[in-house]
Design a protein around this nucleic acid. Structure first.
Lengths: 161, 161
DNA sequence: GTATTTGCAAAAGCTTTGCTGCAAC
DNA sequence: GTTGCAGCAAAGCTTTTGCAAATAC
């Protein structure tokens, strides 16, 4: 539910404002990130970008992601390293959000909260720390999977009677 | 300041309770993590463990870290990938804490907060999500470095007069 | 004696880099 | 014409794995 409320800005517009050159390859990658459904890793982004511009190379993907990261336009996620050591990317949202990763089904839920905002304020004030990036990732068991676990436990118990 | 209040449990005692075999190599690694000053990566841990037991191998380090992670006794950190893609490890504390990584000087500050605890409760309740691991990492500029930045800016400004 | 753990070396996975040519302003 | 960007392929770094020997119970 929260996810739908997350507002992602237009990378192309931001880059234009910043005076960054937008080549055909960069455009292809940017469109891939921007229209992605969910969180993509570098390989998935390469494939998605290739559908828009077949020339784009893996190195360009990494170099462009690095650029966007430095400009604070995208965030790099680990998603609790559930599927290896690769990174996932998403367009930065106007309001920071956190990620819940279900270790059972792999689903990622996004979440915003005024408490999170207050915590950020506390961090800045109490430590006089100027926050540039913040990443809150949670690993655990989602609603659906814990229900299924309970059902499985109940079934096992029943079959032992 | 907060850091001193963080209470880290004894890995050896916990492992005994769990009935996990404690070999000489595991003991060496565990002592290395437990007495580490700061956050060590796998290579640093290997070196530290070798000082206690020269036989220990890199593979054993990774395998033991994996075991301790699965048992929820240590936490794996990325520390915002400031120095490559390696991971850092620390003994889990009784109260969860977050990490502030200064992108200028590389210093890591640890931080606990009742707000963080409340946020965790909110996550669990609102999403019915059973939290197993939580990792909050912040990248930015620490107090000391931002002061130096301001001083540098002032000096530059003065020299241009 | 059986099961677990280890070392070794090789492989795997993801990301970065050097270099040359190409494209943009 | 100068500067920055891209492709290619190779290297880099961290982590994982297969297997035989060693160790623990």
């Amino acid at each position: 539910m929260e996810k739908l409320l997350l507002h992602r800005r237009s990378l192309l517009r931001e880059l234009e404002t910043l005076g960054v050159r937008i080549t055909a390859q960069r455009r292809a990658l940017i469109e891939a990130i921007q229209t992605a459904d969910g969180h993509l890793d570098a390989t998935m982004l390469l494939e998605a970008a290739r559908k828009r511009d077949t020339r784009i190379n893996r190195a360009t993907v990494y170099r462009t992601l690095e650029l966007l990261k430095k400009l604070g336009l995208i965030d790099e996620l680990d998603l609790m390293h559930m599927t290896g050591e690769k990174h996932f990317y998403e367009v930065r949202t106007t309001v920071d959000h956190l990620h819940l990763a279900c270790v059972e089904c792999g689903r990622i839920e996004e979440f915003t909260s005024p408490l999170f905002e207050r915590l950020k304020t506390e961090i800045s004030l109490r430590n006089q720390f100027e926050i540039r990036v913040i990443r809150l990732e949670v690993g655990g068991c989602c609603k659906t999977c814990s229900k299924q676990d309970h059902r499985a436990v109940a079934l096992r118990a029943a079959s032992h009677v």
